[in-house]
C-alpha cells in the first residue's frame, strides 16, 4: 500500500502547525466541561475534526489521532461514572473489579494526558508524533493513497421512460 509523502517541518506553515496543536489542547478545555458527562468532550473533538479536516493532511492527521485516542478514554470514563452511580445506588462496595477498573481508567487518562501534551508540542514544531495504535491508524487513514475511481466506467444516461 502506498502513502502520500510526509511534509518536513520547514515545509509546514505556522498557522497549520497551530491548528494541529489545537487538536490536543482543545481536549483539555472540553475535558473539564465534560467531566460530569464525559461524552461532551468527544462531541467537541468530532466537531473540531470536521471543522479542520480541510486544512491539509498534517492537521487532519493530528486531529484524527487526537480524536481516535479520545474515544476509548471517553468510553472508559463514562463506564466509570455509570459504575460509580450504580455502586452508590445499590450500596455495593468499591473494591475488587471496581478498584481495578478505577486504577486502569486513571492510568489511561494519565497516559492520554502525557501523550497529548507531547503530541501538541510536536505538532507545534511541525513534527509527526505517533501514539501507539492511534498514530498508525490516523496515519493510515490520512496518508494512504486511495485508488482513484475510473471515471470512464460511468456514463450519464437519460431517465427511464
Amino acid at each position: 500500500m502506498d502513502y502520500h509523502p510526509l511534509p518536513q517541518p520547514d515545509q509546514i506553515e505556522t498557522r497549520v502547525k497551530e491548528d494541529a496543536m489545537g487538536a490536543y489542547f482543545m481536549m483539555f478545555a472540553t475535558a473539564a466541561m465534560g467531566l460530569p458527562l464525559p461524552i461532551l468532550n468527544l462531541v467537541a473533538a468530532i466537531i473540531y475534526y470536521y471543522v479542520n479536516r480541510d486544512k491539509g493532511r498534517f492537521v487532519q492527521f493530528h486531529t484524527l489521532q487526537s480524536l481516535y485516542s479520545q474515544i476509548p478514554v471517553t468510553l472508559l470514563n463514562s463506564g466509570l461514572v455509570v459504575w460509580t452511580i450504580v455502586n452508590f445506588a445499590r450500596d455495593l462496595d468499591f473494591f475488587g473489579f471496581y478498584w481495578g477498573y478505577l486504577v486502569m481508567v486513571a492510568t489511561a487518562n494519565l497516559v492520554y494526558f502525557i501523550f497529548s501534551i507531547v503530541g501538541a508540542v510536536k505538532a507545534r514544531k511541525g513534527v509527526f508524533y505517533y501514539f501507539l495504535f492511534f498514530g498508525k491508524l490516523a496515519y493510515h487513514q490520512v496518508y494512504r493513497i486511495r485508488p482513484e475511481r475510473d471515471q470512464s466506467t460511468f456514463s450519464n444516461r437519460p431517465p427511464r421512460q
Partner: peptide, 21 residues
C-alpha cells in the same frame, strides 16, 4: 498495537482487581 494496548490495560485491570486490597 491494538492487541498490545488491550493487553496492557486489561492486565492493569486484572492485577489491581485481584490484588487491590
Amino acid at each position: 498495537d491494538l492487541l498490545v494496548l488491550l493487553g496492557v490495560f486489561g492486565l492493569i485491570w486484572l492485577v489491581f482487581s485481584l490484588f487491590s486490597y
